[in-house]
Design a protein around this nucleic acid. Structure first.
Lengths: 169, 169
DNA sequence: GGGATACTGGACTAAGATAGTCCCATATAG
DNA sequence: CTATATGGGACTATCTTAGTCCAGTATCCC
C-alpha cells in the first residue's frame, strides 16, 4: 500500500541496534555513551558494511545520531530513544515528502481545476503523520513480546531483511 | 515521507470525476447510472487519454468501477462513493502492500534475531490504515472546506459509512 | 611524530520500478 | 456492417533505488 524504501528499513534497524547497545544489552551495563563502529553495527544487524556506512553517515548528519571520529570513534544515539519518533526517522531517510507531491508546500499544481482532492490528501497525510508520531524508537527497540503482535498467519511475519549479498561488482 | 505513485493519484482523480458526474454536477440531474467514456474522463480531468484508459481498465477490474462495452458504453462507479474508502483506492492501485515487505503475511524473515521491530511496524501500519479507512470517496469529491476529522487514537475501524456532507450545495 | 583506526563526502553503476504509449481483439448500438 | 468503446497486454524511455568504492580528514596510541 504505502511503502518505505529498503534503506529506510535498514536505517531503522541500525537505530534499533544503537538503542539496544546503549541500553547495554550486551554486557548488562547501561551506557548511553557507548560508541558503535560501523563494523559493529554491520555485524550486529547482518547488513552489508558499505550500506551501513552510508546510512550511518546520513544519520550522523541528522539530529538523531552523533559521531566521534578517529580511532576508538563510532556512533551513538544523540537523544533518548523515547524521544525519537518514527516520523522523525522517516523524515531523515525519505525527506519531508508527503504522500502526494501536491501536499508539500512548495509544489504547484497544474491541475487545480480538475483536482478537487488536494485538501483531502493533506488530511490523510496529517492522519498518517499523527500515527507515526505516536511510535518512538524506544517502542521499536523493545522486545516484541510487549507489543500486541498480530499473527497474520502461521508463518514468520516479522520484517524481512535480506542481507545484501556482497557481490563482486 | 510516504509516497503514493502518480498513477494512484491520477486514479483518485478519475474516481472523483466519476463520483461528481454521477452526482449530476453537469446538468443538475442525479444519475448514478451515468456512464463516462475514457475520453470524457480524460478531458474532464485533463489527464492524457492513454493514461486514463489504462487506469480505467485497472479500476474496472476492481470492485470500485463497472464498465459497459460497445458503442455508448463507458464507466461508472459500482458503489456509492460514501462506501468507498481511501484505503480501498490505494489497494487497487498499489496492491495490499504494507510499508515494509515483511508486514505482509507471506514474506519470510531471514534475520529474526536482528530484527525486533516487526510488531511496531505493524502497529504503525494499522494506524495508517485506520486513517485511510476514515476517508471516503464522497469526502474526496466534496469541496474540501468541511471535512471529517481523522481520529487515529485507536485502531483502524472498519469501513465506516459517512452521511454525505450536508454542507454541499 | 607516525601509523592505525574510523568517520566524511561524494561519485559511480547496475538493477528495478514507474509513467506513458501503442496495438489488436472483443463487444455493442444503430 | 460500421462506428464506437472497452479489454488485455506488450513495449520502452526515464527515473529512482540499492549498493559499492575511493580519496580525504580527524583522533588515539605508541
Amino acid at each position: 500500500m504505502l511503502r518505505i524504501s529498503k534503506l529506510t528499513d535498514y536505517g531503522t534497524m541500525i537505530l534499533v541496534h544503537l538503542a539496544v547497545q546503549a541500553r547495554g544489552a550486551k554486557d548488562g551495563v547501561v551506557d548511553p555513551e557507548h560508541l558503535c563502529s560501523a563494523s559493529d553495527v554491520a555485524s550486529g544487524t547482518r547488513l552489508a558494511l558499505p550500506t551501513v556506512q552510508k546510512l550511518l553517515k546520513v544519520l550522523a548528519r541528522s539530529e538523531l545520531v552523533r559521531s566521534v571520529r578517529g580511532s576508538e570513534g563510532g556512533y551513538a544515539l544523540a537523544r533518548n530513544p523515547a524521544t525519537i519518533t518514527a516520523a522523525e526517522i522517516l523524515d531523515v531517510f525519505e525527506g519531508p515528502l508527503s504522500i502526494t507531491e501536491c501536499s508539500t508546500a512548495d509544489s504547484r499544481c497544474e491541475l487545480e481545476d480538475g483536482c478537487p482532492t488536494g485538501g483531502a490528501w493533506q488530511k490523510i497525510n496529517r492522519g498518517i503523520r499523527g500515527a507515526l508520531d505516536e511510535i518512538t524508537l524506544a517502542d521499536l527497540a523493545h522486545p516484541p513480546r510487549e507489543f500486541p503482535l498480530v499473527d497474520l498467519s502461521g508463518r514468520s511475519s516479522r520484517l524481512r531483511h535480506r542481507p545484501p549479498t556482497p557481490g563482486q561488482g
